[in-house]
């Protein structure tokens, strides 16, 4: 069993180029990983005999809402710039330790590597993250909407600047 700090040290030794910081403002520490390295980092975490992270508890995407806010006349707004992030909670069922990883991507180009080849659980979670926030997971086997209708074209509902359409297939929405 290892603490988050120890796991951070191990990762830092393994990937000195890009693992340097922990997100400390939250009261839950999160190790920051670049979007295009997450797959190899996770593979390392899952296979290293000292770590053995064999299960992904939760994958959550969130809109940081930190861009420039462009308000419009009708009270709605849009974000310009800023970031979206994806947070991974991993656990080892054998060694019983946990770790939190964090990936931050720009709003304009939210591309993150998929980890569904390591944990099958990630398949649906990533589809949900795509559906709700619009994160694009590269190398995902089947990235399409999961909760909203397949032909939904009004955007990603959990983004803070989401606007609901007036009609969907002839049914009044709001």
């Amino acid at each position: 069993m290892k603490t988050q700090q120890e796991i951070f040290e191990i990762l830092k030794a393994q990937y000195p180029d890009f693992i340097t910081t922990q997100d400390t403002e939250a009261n839950e520490l999160a190790i920051e990983v670049p979007a295009l390295q997450i797959n190899s980092v996770c593979q390392f975490l899952a296979s290293n005999p000292d770590l053995l992270f064999d299960s992904l508890i939760l994958l959550s995407a969130l809109d940081d809402a930190n861009g420039k806010k462009n308000s419009e006349a009708d009270g709605s707004f849009e974000f310009d710039g800023g970031t979206l992030s994806v947070i991974y909670h991993l656990e080892s069922s054998k060694l019983r330790h946990k770790v939190v990883l964090k990936v931050v991507v720009p709003r304009e180009k939210p591309e993150v590597e998929s980890v569904s080849s390591i944990w099958q659980h990630a398949d649906w979670e990533e589809r949900e993250a795509y559906d709700m926030i619009g994160i694009i997971f590269l190398n995902h086997p089947n990235l399409q909407r999961i909760l909203m209708p397949y032909d939904w074209d009004a955007g990603f509902p959990l983004r803070k600047d989401y606007k609901n359409p007036e009609f969907y297939m002839g049914i009044k929405v709001p």
């Binding site: 509902p157 609901n164 049914i171 929405v173």
Partner: peptide, 11 residues
């Protein structure tokens, strides 16, 4: 509810 029909009688 962005995905909820506000009343069955709309359908």
């Amino acid at each position: 509810g962005y995905h909820v029909v506000k009343g069955m009688d709309r359908v």
